[in-house]
Amino acid sequence: MIKVDNLVKKYGDVAASNHLNCHFEKGKITVILGGSGSGKSTLLRQVVGLEKPDSGAVYFDGMDITIMHRKKLYEIRKKMGMLFQGSALFNYLNIYENIAFPLHEHTKIADSVIKTIVTMKLEMVGLRGTEHLMPSQLSGGMTKRVGLARAIVMDPEIIFYDEPTSGLDPISTGVIDKLIKDLNRALNITSVVVSHDIESCFRIADNIIILFFGEIIAMGAAEEIKNSKDLRVKQFINGEPEGPIPFTRTDKNYLDEILFY
């Protein structure tokens, strides 16, 4: 469905995406794993066209979205849903208006039908009855679920999740995981999840991509990754502080720096 071809993106001297090649299969849940600063959010933002890569291409159903005209890109975006890390609900609209927003903007559906659709989507995320509340009145987990309801209101073919479970309590995490999985199984929606939550990742993932400093160090089906012999992969999924992936970022020797500064 989506193919990433030799993607390069640099911020100054740091390569956030260093010649990345991967693809997201139709109807599957692909989880992009990586520590903070590994370039996973940057990859996601390039895949959806929010940021332009320095070079390389992203093919959506065979069309390169990095060089696409804005109008065409907007057409494709209507098939995409995205759940942002902070949910990105419009703070001046209430829950109902937030979810109905894409419908009001893009369709001529009658208000009574929109109301039915919104009620259905809210029921899916278990938040029916909150229509009149403002986003600021909801907890973090609830805003994520409202964000998800908004992301699926146009019935997208593919949904992107940017750290859907970060900062949530275990139960909310479980709820979100279940929702991601249900949406994928029930509606056959292709899902791309950016995450650093290993547990939740193995609960939902069909395929896993592990990023490390802008490079893909492992890619494959969830089982393969789980049983991987690669030391870096093992260190990452077991969360070990010692291993081939260094914790510090500088090349300078620590002793040198404190003794001979």
Partner: peptide, 18 residues
């Protein structure tokens, strides 16, 4: 500025709204 911090502007962009 706050719409930008809280990703509301990219969210509009993702909903195919300029």
């Amino acid at each position: 500025g706050i719409m930008k911090i809280t990703d509301q502007l990219p969210a509009l962009e993702m909903m195919a709204i300029d």
